[in-house]
C-alpha cells in the first residue's frame, strides 16, 4: 500500500490524459498539436502508469509483442490510407480527390483522411516512446 494517494490520483487522471492524447492526435488538422504531440501524450500516460504502478504492471498492460505490432503497423496504416486514393483511381495520398467529404471547415471531418493518417502516426509515436522507456528502464536493472 505504498503511494496510496499517488495511485488513486493516477487512476483518476491517467484515463483522461490518454483520451486527451487521442483528441490531440485526431484534431491535428484543425488545431495546434497533431499526431506527434498527441502520440507523445498517449505514450506518457503509459509511462506515468509504469512509473507509478511499477514496470511489471506496465509490461502487463503493454506486452512487448503488442508494442512491436503497433510500432510497425502504425506506420503501415499511414501507407494504407495513402492507398485509398490509389483504389479510387486518383494519385497516392489523395484526400479530397479520393471522394472524401470534407464537410465544414474547422470541424473534425474537414481534415478528410488526415485524422486517420494521424492516428497511425500517433500510435507509432506512442509505442516508440513507450518502447524507449521500457528499454532504458530494463537496461538499468
Amino acid at each position: 500500500m505504498r503511494d496510496f494517494i499517488l495511485k488513486r490520483a493516477a487512476s483518476l487522471i491517467l484515463p483522461f490524459i490518454f483520451v486527451y492524447g487521442i483528441y490531440v492526435i485526431l484534431h491535428g488538422a484543425v488545431s495546434p498539436g497533431g499526431s506527434f504531440a498527441g502520440g507523445i501524450i498517449v505514450g506518457l500516460s503509459f509511462i506515468a502508469f509504469s512509473t507509478i504502478y511499477g514496470i511489471e504492471q506496465g509490461r502487463a498492460k503493454l506486452p512487448e509483442k503488442v508494442l512491436v505490432w503497433t510500432e510497425s503497423y502504425g506506420t503501415l496504416w499511414y501507407g494504407l490510407m495513402g492507398l485509398v486514393g490509389l483504389v479510387r483511381g486518383v494519385p497516392f495520398l489523395a484526400n479530397k480527390l479520393a471522394g472524401v467529404d470534407l464537410g465544414t471547415p474547422g470541424t473534425l471531418s474537414s481534415g478528410g483522411l488526415i485524422p486517420l493518417i494521424g492516428l497511425g502516426v500517433g500510435i507509432r509515436v506512442a509505442s516508440t516512446i513507450v518502447t524507449l522507456f521500457f528499454t532504458i528502464m530494463e537496461e538499468e536493472r
Binding site: K65, V68, W69, S72, Y73, L76
Partner: peptide, 10 residues
Amino acid sequence: PLFVAFILPP
C-alpha cells in the same frame, strides 16, 4: 519496399 519493411518486424 517500404510497405514490406513495415510488415516484417512482428
